[in-house]
């Protein structure tokens, strides 16, 4: 089995981010970066499928030089090859990322392309779906379990949907996006981190892939959400109903 898998460098969701004064983006100094947790689930799934069924895992990320560190941590977890598509967050949107990855998928021809269901910075939740559409491949998003069926020709995927678990079967080549409960990503050991440091990362440009770089999404301004207002205490149910009707006007 040949598996392509993504990783993305995101701002640590645990740290409080600050916006640039002019609202043009997020202030990057002093910010710590981490691999996107959903991508780590995707990598874990890819590696364990490879370990069960043989084959290779190729990790890909779109980002600047600094993304190499994130890519190397995927290699340290066990990916066989690594590709970075050179790009800067400012010049990307979900659609362009999906088109670039689709091009890569066309040239690499994997059996499965596994991605995180979304990146925890932008939380757009678009890339896997768009890419599947561009490729004309079946997709199974929000996977919480993956079982390879038909002697490696398809997979049964349990999807977390509102109200329960839906199971779908997708024929390969297919796109799968990973949810948090899919697995517990392994920790890379120091010897593997050392080895990953020496792994060559193949760098491609968007031009190499023949991708048109116009964006569909234009960012005008970043704004912090308004601070939460303090709550109110109500005396009893009657008071609550009265307030919902007359103050909040929702009844």
């Amino acid at each position: 089995m040949k598996i392509l898998v993504t990783t993305k460098r995101v701002t640590d969701p645990g740290t409080k981010i600050k916006l640039k004064a002019d609202g043009s983006g997020i202030a990057a100094d002093g910010v710590e970066f981490k691999p996107n947790p959903f991508c780590e689930n995707a990598i874990e799934a890819a590696i364990s499928l490879r370990d069960q069924h043989g084959g290779e895992v190729i990790v890909v990320s779109i980002g600047p030089d600094e993304a190499d560190q994130t890519i190397r941590s995927a290699v340290a977890m066990g990916c066989n090859r690594a590709i970075r598509i050179d790009g800067n967050d400012g010049g990307l949107d979900g659609d362009l990322v999906a088109r670039a990855l689709a091009k890569l998928a066309e040239s690499e021809q994997p059996d499965v392309f596994i991605l995180g269901k979304q990146a925890v910075d932008g939380d757009s939740n678009q890339v896997g779906q768009l890419m599947a559409e561009y490729l004309g491949w079946p997709q199974a998003t929000f996977a919480s379990a993956i079982t390879v069926t038909n002697g490696g020709k398809s997979a049964q995927v349990a999807r977390e949907v509102d109200g329960g678990i839906e199971t779908v079967e997708v024929d390969f080549p297919a796109v799968i996006t990973a949810d948090l409960r899919l697995n517990e990503p392994r920790f890379a050991s120091l010897p593997n981190i050392m080895k990953a440091k020496r792994t060559a990362i193949e760098v491609k440009t968007l031009a190499d892939l023949g991708v048109e770089t116009t964006l569909k999404v234009r960012t005008t301004r970043f704004e912090a959400p308004p601070g939460r207002q303090a709550g109110k205490k109500v005396a009893d149910v009657a008071d609550l109903v009265q307030k919902l009707r007359n103050e909040a006007k929702v009844l």
């Binding site: 100094d29 002093g30 560190q69 190397r72 941590s73 340290a76 120091l190 981190i193 990953a196 440091k197």
Partner: peptide, 21 residues
């Protein structure tokens, strides 16, 4: 800002990766 961020430049990629793990 992290007052010790300037010390991270003394660490190599394996050290940073291990700390993150």
């Amino acid at each position: 800002k992290r007052p010790t961020a300037f010390l991270d430049v003394q660490l190599d990629a394996t050290e940073l990766a291990l700390r993150q793990n």
